[in-house]
Design a protein around this nucleic acid. Structure first.
Length: 792
DNA sequence: ATAGGGTTAG
């Protein structure tokens, strides 16, 4: 093949080479014409058998490519493909070419490969030596820096540090940039001690740390928790940059309070202002948020505003994420509005946090609605946001829509990950559509995304819960075959799942078959027994369990026992919890008190109530009201009164129910005579009524009914009628009890025409006269007829 | 600069 030097193609190529090209990925065929080679060499290069190329020719060829780094690279590539290991000189030439062309990224990758290749037949230092002898000073510095970088990116820190010292041996000063890079990565790997040690040796190396160096080392000190060291170092070179790093370090290491003190000082000294100050404030907000000091974070926001800064995206994001984690949706949404009002950009992290908050608060429908709202707001929603939407839809039993949403997500160019698939699989399982769940497993694998431990846990749980025992076992085997190690969750979900599918024996068998059992598995069996309505059996097993136990076991067992009517055992569970210092929580005690009250065991209820108070667990409004109600029912008015005062003193505001319960018992008639009690009672009733109205609580139907009943009983039918009308005027819809109360008042006192009117009114209403309600009205109408007939 | 998603946790 002869060279046609002036052929149009060649001209074009050589012309191109005059232009400094950025590193491109374009592959250059080695067979490109090269004017610097002899014919035989050119042929050698073109010939597939590159191994015949001797080092001298190779070197000559490489030298000839100095104007075309891409050609040099692809030549090297082809050599390697043909099993030829270029020697140190070849590498030196290549590296020099790349370096002078400023192709740093390519240089980096060549060196990474070189460092990884153990068959290279020369040391990395040999390469440095050759470059030192043959290349410009600048190239040497550049290459050594790149070498440090290469080692660092492979986490070979000792080797990287060695390069630095070798440079010193060669009387060269390595670039500060590569040192900074090395130290940054050391921090990422948690090797903060090495950073500090290295920094101390920098001067020995003849290096002059720049402000980045200081910042990095300050960061290292912070990571170590050595804030004193950080401050000491910072004072050597107190730049704003370093201060910002220190503030960041303090905030990221649980020392936000200290950061605040520092910031105040820096404001006074006029070191921090403008954007730097805003940055510092945002850091502090985030710090407090991470430390779960929400109020402190709020006050920093106010402080920011006092300093003339509107809270920015970072501060707002941190607040929203915090509030979402606290499940304080109101405040989270408040900040969201604030951001929207100020035109700050809402990002997908905020969106996913808010959506997730809705889900966690059992408001999946709202979560999905919000998702759609955000979708229409020109905010980029990533797969995390989509995932929360999948989850919400799945929990709403609308997994098909979730799958459609997955398609929408993919249409937008997003690639679903294992979590997306797992969420959808869970959605299918929740609806018992295990076949679809299994299909999805295949589909994801087909897309190169493989189920992980959690995916299998979800699947195996779904299979077990839906009674597919064999299939669950099969998947269990399959995951093990795929090298995934089932964990306690895997076993627990199978045990609990099988139980809730009423396959209790299978669950017991599975537990028995496990080689490695843990106490947790037995706890799951207890929960499983509860699930299948065997709370007595659960209790028996529970007593034998090792402690401590997770709260969920107590919870489940307790509520099952309550539901199945084993109150004594439920109470035992509660007492055991206390004995093991597991906080039963307000709702649990409340439930127990409610259950005891229901069977009129107010003594035991009171004991529990007192224990709650003793343990600092203040009973809620409901519990107080239940207790008061019970005392009223049992005619222990003094006790009811005492509790009423007690709750008010604790700042728990009685509601309309509490007042009604008490009012009802205050105005009770004399149980002996069935008539109105004395003046004293009248006084007490009106006194109580005064308190009631003073509390500014709106009356409800039940309360009106109680009042109407009272008026009927004391023969004040006019007032009863007025109350009834007022109830309707105030927008309340009387229920069956209200009608019945007034009607029976009319009957008893012989107000037949009023009764007729009321029944007529009632019949005009489009209320279906069925069930209890209908019966009683029909009963009233019949009675009415009879009465009218009698009168005639 | 930064934060967020999937299995038991009722």
């Amino acid at each position: 093949m002869r060279l046609r030097l002036f052929s149009p193609t060649f001209f074009f190529l050589s012309h191109l080479r005059l232009i400094r090209r950025p590193a491109s990925s374009r592959f250059y065929a080695v067979s490109a014409f090269n004017p610097n080679l002899s014919d035989s060499e050119q042929q050698l290069v073109n010939h597939p058998n590159l191994s015949k190329l001797n080092q001298a020719s190779l070197q000559r060829f490489l030298n000839s490519t100095r104007d075309d780094p891409n050609l040099a690279l692809s030549f090297l590539e082809q050599l390697k493909q043909h099993g030829v290991s270029p020697n140190v000189n070849a590498y030196a030439t290549l590296v020099r070419i790349l370096s002078t062309w400023g192709l740093d990224r390519k240089l980096d990758s060549v060196l990474v490969e070189l460092v990884q290749n153990e068959e290279r037949g020369f040391t990395v230092m040999d390469l440095i030596e050759v470059i030192k002898e043959e290349a410009e000073e600048e190239v040497l510095i550049r290459v050594s820096g790149a070498l440090v970088k290469a080692y660092v990116s492979l986490a070979m820190f000792d080797e990287a540090i060695d390069v630095l010292f070798q440079m010193k041996r060669l009387n060269r000063v390595p670039s500060i940039k590569s040192c900074n890079f090395l130290m940054s990565r050391l921090i990422e790997f948690g090797k903060t001690g090495m950073v500090v040690a290295l920094f101390r040796q920098l001067k020995q190396l003849g290096l002059c740390p720049n402000e980045y160096t200081y910042a990095i080392v300050v960061k290292a000190f912070c990571r170590k928790g050595d804030f004193e060291g950080a401050v000491k170092l910072l004072l050597e070179s107190p730049t704003v940059f370093a201060y910002k790093t220190l503030i960041d370090g303090l905030c990221a290491n649980g020392q936000t309070e200290q950061a605040v003190v520092l910031i105040k000082k820096l404001i006074d000294e006029k070191v921090l202002s403008g954007d730097d100050l805003r940055f510092a404030f945002s850091m502090v907000v985030r710090g407090f948020c991470n430390e779960m000091k929400t109020e402190a974070a709020e006050s920093v926001i106010l402080e920011m505003e006092r300093n003339g800064f509107d809270p920015d995206v970072f501060a707002c994001s941190a607040m929203i994420v915090r509030y979402c984690k606290d499940m304080n949706l109101t405040e989270a949404l408040g900040f969201l509005d604030l951001m929207l009002g100020k035109g700050l950009k809402i990002n997908c992290v905020i969106v996913s946090s808010v959506l997730q908050c809705y889900c966690k608060m059992d408001m999946c429908l709202e979560a999905f609605e919000k998702f759609k709202e955000f979708s229409g707001m020109n905010i980029f929603l990533d797969r995390v946001c989509y995932n929360v939407a999948f989850d919400a839809l799945g929990k709403l039993g609308r997994v098909e829509e979730a799958v459609k949403l997955l398609q929408e997500m993919m249409d937008k160019g997003m690639v679903p990950d294992v979590i997306n698939y797992t969420t959808l699989i869970d959605g299918y399982c929740l609806q018992g559509k295990v076949v679809d769940a299994l299909d999805l497993i295949n589909e994801m694998s087909g897309n190169g995304i493989y189920p992980d431990l959690i995916t299998y846990n979800v699947l195996v749980s779904g299979l077990a819960r839906n009674g597919y025992e064999k299939e669950a076992q099969e998947i269990y085997k399959r995951m093990k075959a795929e090298g995934l190690k089932p964990n306690a969750v895997t076993h627990n979900v199978i045990i609990e799942g099988l139980c809730s599918a009423r396959k209790v024996e299978e669950a017991e068998g599975f537990l028995r078959s496990l080689e490695q059992k843990c106490p947790d598995n037995y706890a799951s069996l207890v929960k499983g027994y509860c699930e299948s309505g065997l709370s007595k059996k659960a209790y028996k097993q529970f007593v034998r369990l090792e402690r401590p136990l997770s709260k969920s076991v107590y919870n489940k067992l307790f509520f099952s026992l309550c539901m199945e009517g084993y109150l004594d055992k439920a109470l035992d569970v509660l007492k055991i919890m206390w004995a093991y210092r597991v906080e039963p929580g307000r709702s649990m005690c409340g439930k127990m008190i409610g259950a005891l009250c229901e069977i009129n065991n107010v003594r035991e209820a009171q004991l529990l109530f007192d224990t709650m108070v003793e343990r600092g667990l203040i009973p809620d409004l409901f519990t107080y009201t239940i207790m008061i109600h019970t005392y009223c029912r049992l005619n222990e008015l003094q006790k009811a009164d005492d509790l009423f005062e007690d709750m008010k003193q604790r700042g728990i505001k009685p509601d309309v129910v509490t007042y009604t319960v008490l009012l009802n018992s205050y105005q009770k008639l004399d149980p002996e005579t069935g008539s109105v009690q004395g003046e004293e009672q009248k006084k007490r009733v009106s006194e109580f009524w005064r308190k009631f109205t003073a509390a500014g609580i709106g009356l409800d139907v039940v309360c009106y009914t109680v009042l109407i009943d009272r008026q009927c009983k004391i023969n004040n039918i006019e007032k009863a009628t007025k109350l009834f009308d007022r109830m309707i005027e105030s927008g309340l819809e009387p229920d069956m009890v209200a009608y019945k109360t007034l009607l029976s008042g009319y009957f008893r006192r012989g107000y037949i025409d009023k009764a007729v009117a009321l029944v007529t009114e009632l019949s005009k209403k489009d209320i279906l006269l069925t069930g209890h309600f209908g019966d009683s009205v029909k009963h009233a109408a019949l009675k009415l007829k009879r009465l009218q007939q009698n009168q005639e």
